[in-house]
Design a protein around this nucleic acid. Structure first.
Lengths: 215, 215
DNA sequence: CATCATAGTGCTCAATTGTTCACTATCAAT
DNA sequence: ATTGATAGTGAACAATTGAGCACTATGATG
């Protein structure tokens, strides 16, 4: 079993994976540093050393961009299928969530959908949620749409996120102020929701995509 | 169409692919030269330049190992893949369409996307079109979104369709009146378009879905 | 409080790597 | 016979990139 990563290390590992998928080769130390405002290559190098020690990557000594990513086992099991160089990706569709039940509980699953693996990976634990209500129409998210949710990413201010609020699942734009969390609907008929009781609130994940089928 | 490679160029391209698959990153000029007993990096570089000119790779200037391998998919046959009992579906993404060119011309294709075969089948000749402009925001279709288009289905009144109008591709709601075709934008800032000259107008297909990726 | 792991700065240095030049050689096609 | 595309040498140079050191800071833990 692999050792657990710190928050920072996990961010950096994900950046390396994304970069490599987009460019076909891994980033340099300075490119990683640039992304995270780490001005010293040494700071970055130590993160890589930590990732290597914990078994997530292998670093080629003195080689530029010499980062080998070690695939997690769970990348290959379950519903991710490898065909040649491509990964096909089947994620569950969550329909109406029964109050109090874990969102991915069997009773909440209404089916599955294949999603391009360029965008979300099964390894991220992504799932699709069918949207109820019209509170996000100004963001182009309508009743019945599927939003693709990545629980690995809890979102930052301005992101569209899925949250659990008083046993209900809701899609809103996240707005973080100093000491205050506000959920913004994207519909003038609804008011922003200010989080008063942090115990009855949690962020499930960031919305990474929207899928709609007509007729 | 891609130009033919020489024997040597083909060997080198294959080596780069193999190297990348084994190591997770592309080789350096000297590593390529080492494999083929080419002592000068310049000799190797010129092979890469040739590969780039012929459209097989893209070289990142001054970047170590900066070799991007361009995938040459044949979009029009053999891209439905069977895995077990499931069919996976890869359809081309059409970006900006050059005026006067057929919409699926190679120069218009910017990539491909895997779509759940439950919704659109390759057999329908479906493709994805990247949306330009904001004329459909009230229908939840934004600039940059991908609309999934089925050319088998020319749509009926009330459907969102993709049409070719005066050498331009446009997404609108179709409205058929007796003896008149009107294209309705879904944005109050735009006016409906009444088709006067049927020669400069044709329906490409019906929009069967919308896909949007955030960040 | 002391200790340890994590995280970062600013800097130097060495190694790696890409770029370019002038020159040679082969082969196919004009 | 001359031209053009391909293929390669050897060297010098510039740019990128990784490695390492001394030092600072924070939070968790015992």
């Amino acid at each position: 079993m692999k050792e657990k990563l710190t928050e920072r290390q996990n961010e950096i590992l994900n950046f390396i994976k994304d970069y490599r998928r987009e460019n076909g080769f891994p980033p340099t130390l300075r490119e990683i540093g640039g992304r995270f405002q780490i001005s010293s290559t040494f700071g970055v190098k130590r993160h890589l050393n930590a990732l290597e020690k914990k078994g997530y990557v292998v670093i080629e000594r003195n080689a530029s961009r010499g980062i080998r990513i070690i695939q997690h086992d769970d990348y290959f099991d379950g519903d991710t299928t490898r065909v040649g160089d491509e990964f096909f990706n089947k994620i569950p569709i969550v329909g109406r969530v029964a109050a109090g039940s874990p969102i991915l509980a069997m009773e909440n699953i209404e089916g599955s959908i294949i999603i391009d693996p360029t965008f979300v990976k099964k390894a991220e634990g992504a799932f699709a949620l069918r949207v109820r209500g019209d509170s996000m129409i100004n963001a182009g998210i309508f009743e019945g749409d599927l939003v693709i949710v990545s629980p690995d990413n809890k979102g930052k201010s301005g992101d569209v996120i899925v949250a659990m609020l008083d046993d209900e699942v809701t899609v809103k734009t996240l707005n973080v102020k100093k000491n205050k969390i506000v959920l913004l609907p994207e519909n003038d008929n609804y008011d922003p929701i200010t989080i008063e009781d942090k115990n009855s609130f949690s962020i499930i994940g960031k919305v990474k995509g929207v899928v709609r089928w007509l007729n």
